[in-house]
Design a protein around this nucleic acid. Sequence first.
DNA 1: TACACTAACTTACTTAAAGTAAGTAATAAT
DNA 2: ATTATTACTTACTTTAAGTAAGTTAGTGTA
Lengths: 111, 111
Amino acid sequence: MKELCPRFEKAMQLFSKRWVGLILFELLEGSKRFSEMESELPVSGRLLSERLKMLEKEEIIERRVYSEFPVRIEYILTDKGRALEPVIKEIQTWSEGWITEQELEDENTKP
Amino acid sequence: MKELCPRFEKAMQLFSKRWVGLILFELLEGSKRFSEMESELPVSGRLLSERLKMLEKEEIIERRVYSEFPVRIEYILTDKGRALEPVIKEIQTWSEGWITEQELEDENTKP
DNA sequence: TACACTAACTTACTTAAAGTAAGTAATAAT
DNA sequence: ATTATTACTTACTTTAAGTAAGTTAGTGTA
């Protein structure tokens, strides 16, 4: 196997984990709480927790704890995370230009 | 659950399938044969076949059959597929700017 | 005619990741 | 003591990914 760019491979490994793109999309709007993301995305608490932990480890997001009642925890993008904005923007642009109404309908009539 | 852009969601669904990004990266270099991609990427024939079929269905790639001996089959990006170039480029740019040597080493010493 | 060669897949099976639902921890108000 | 609230965990089921062996179609060679 030929070696392709290992940095690109690593980045794709991140992106190809489910929900990562949508979580980043959410956080580009500003910092969010766990429960906000849980209600805005069709992701379960279990996976959201797992992904946030991973993104924190990768230093793409930061977890901020506010000792109020009840406890408030906010997730916010780091510089490394904010640097992903152009990627998300390009995916948006592409999806708006190339994903047809038909394709979306097919999705919705699946179950 | 709030409805976020369904086109963006659909696009992320595509990207968050393993190997899709790397297959597109390969095909941006030009048309490729099944065996070429199989040897250049650490993906098995089973999944490569599955992903190519999916990308063809999404009209991102085209499958061209040349009746030679032995049969030659080439995969090539459609306009819709080539329109993904900026996405791939932005991921490359990000990965070059933000993925550290350290992170890559950690990966390699995992097993 | 039979056997071998090649590229491009398939099929059958194992392992890992994702989805679901119920449960826990910490804190404070009643 | 009981309830409320947020942010998770744990245990379990289902789906997707990984591995390896097998199949198909068209030649070409003995």
